[in-house]
């Protein structure tokens, strides 16, 4: 069993080198995996955040135009237009500030970097790259509007999707 050149260890140089690297590679992989797990520790599995669905009352209680009643509590504008009702996110698509609704000028204007949006949410000035996001909107069996903020659309192409445009 023992080779002549390394009688005491039982390993020759070639074998030693491969065991040496195997050892270090194993060590690095395990250390790396452990570091990854520590990084993963910072991403909790359970969040205690507000529910993403909320009831927004009777569709008849809204008049044409932009309604701000859920702006502070839910970060949603509910807009009633001739085509129907839709729910706009109040988060500017540039860097997440809350735009102000300027009734006289008929637009949302973001104070951070000057992005402007039409009542449809379309971005028409400033650095915002996309329109305001829209949330899913529906009427439940009690006749109340239900808005689900976990379902949202980004692109203009989906604006007429029935889940996101409530016909009234």
């Amino acid at each position: 069993m023992t080779s002549n050149d390394t009688p005491d260890s039982g390993l020759n140089r070639k074998e030693f080198i491969s065991w040496f690297w195997l050892g270090w590679i194993t060590f690095s992989v395990v250390a790396g995996a452990f570091a990854t797990l520590i990084g993963r520790f910072l991403f909790p599995n359970v969040l205690f955040e507000k529910p993403t669905r909320f009831r927004a009352g009777d569709p008849e209680s809204y008049s044409l135009g932009v309604d701000e009643r859920y702006k502070d509590s839910q970060s949603v504008w509910i807009v009633k237009s001739s085509e129907g009702m839709y729910a706009l996110s109040t988060v500017c698509t540039h860097l997440g500030c809350t735009p102000n609704w300027l009734n006289n000028e008929g637009k949302f204007k973001c104070p951070c970097h000057g992005s402007g949006f039409r009542t449809t949410g379309l971005n028409f000035e400033g650095p915002a790259p996309r329109p305001l996001e829209r949330f899913s909107i529906a009427v439940d069996t009690t006749g109340n509007i239900v808005i689900d903020k976990s379902k949202k659309i980004r692109s203009q192409d989906q604006w007429n999707d029935p889940d996101f445009m409530l016909k009234v």
Binding site: D72, S73, S75, C97, T98, P111, C112
Partner: peptide, 10 residues
């Protein structure tokens, strides 16, 4: 802090 109101200059 009030997440509903962005100050005029942020």
């Amino acid at each position: 802090a009030n997440s509903g109101v962005t100050p005029a200059v942020a």
